[in-house]
Write a protein that binds this DNA or RNA. Structure first.
Lengths: 184, 184
DNA sequence: CATTCATATCTCGCAGCGATATATATCTAG
DNA sequence: CTAGATATATATCGCTGCGAGATATGAATG
């Protein structure tokens, strides 16, 4: 699925600028299942404009830089629906943090603890934020995806809490404690 | 984390050819947390050879094409350990299937059912395979990562089974027949 | 008064994914 | 018995697109 299709998808939810589309991929409802950077979004929007799949309105703002609001056209909706009817590419997940934890025996204790703590904190924050967001979205697909994200985040948090001992020294589970043998 | 570091990581687990390294990323213990294609692996191995981080042994096989076995050097181990001490890049997860399910209201029922069924089947298979693999790996980091993968897959399967109704029409599950109201 | 942050658009280089080419032996189907 | 698929094995090429930076400005922070 290319960047154009992703942008069209966001635009079916409402008109937006390139900047807003990016934010959508960072904080929005499917932030957790896809990403896109400026380097893909802006070229994609220009291509969509050329193809007549979106229209562009330039809004002059006082103070702020000018905004270019993109709106999906009927042709765009049709193209998007068409793209959704192809077989989905397989999922791809990549996590450097987990790769590091896999090799925890090659790392010193402080680094493992650091990576573990940061990772758990990040997933806790996300789970909390998602739980608060609730399902303001009325559409079933959106509710389904939101719930799935939440379920995954909770599973990760729960597993990590219960298996901390596997990664971090078998002796002390305390963090404040006095670093007995671990000296640097 | 670049392809070179990923290859070094695999080679700390044992000598391997480029082909075997690829298989490692497809079926091995961290298959689920990273991927790499030939287009990244072979150039990476050549670069590592130039840098002295691996050595290469050409083995002539009868029948099969020649194999080039790569072995990590002391310098390579050091470089790998060094790379593991940098802050990990944030996770990235991309799933076209979930993106599609998000927009399930724009798709016709057959397509949604198709995507849902394929997706659930794939995750069930993976969860089963992982459960069977067990933790033959004695190292803690490997056990931790294996368990985490299993926990995530189980959470996905469980959530999807319980929330099938959100995506697929509330009335009928209609697989074959005329479909009354409640079939399941 | 300086700096950092948030809004906003856009380009460029480099990494790397997917597809393809090449070669061969075995396994499967017609 | 041959045709095609499958598995082993290496390698390159083009296109996509990510990350980093350039550019611009007002508002909040120090």
């Amino acid at each position: 699925m290319d960047a154009k299709t992703l942008c069209l998808g966001v635009l079916t939810l409402g008109d937006a600028s390139g900047y807003e589309i990016k934010k959508h991929f960072e904080e929005g409802p499917f932030a957790h299942f896809h990403a896109a950077g400026f380097g893909s979004i802006y070229p994609a929007l220009n291509a969509l404009l050329r193809e007549g799949h979106v229209t562009r309105t330039e809004t002059t703002q006082t103070g702020r830089p000018d905004k270019k609001i993109y709106k999906i056209t009927e042709a765009g909706r049709k193209a998007f629906r068409h793209a959704l009817h192809k077989d989905p590419a397989p999922d791809s997940y990549r996590s450097e943090a987990i790769f590091m934890m896999f090799f925890s025996d090659l790392l010193d204790g402080d680094q493992v603890r650091h990576v573990y703590d940061e990772y758990l904190a990040k997933y806790r924050t996300r789970a909390d934020r998602m739980a608060r967001q609730d399902s303001c979205s009325c559409q079933n697909g959106q509710r389904f995806v939101h719930g799935l994200g939440l379920a995954i985040y909770r599973a990760v948090v729960s597993y990590m809490e219960q298996n901390r001992g596997l990664l971090l020294a078998p002796h002390a589970t305390q963090q404040g404690g006095g670093a007995a043998s671990v000296a640097e």
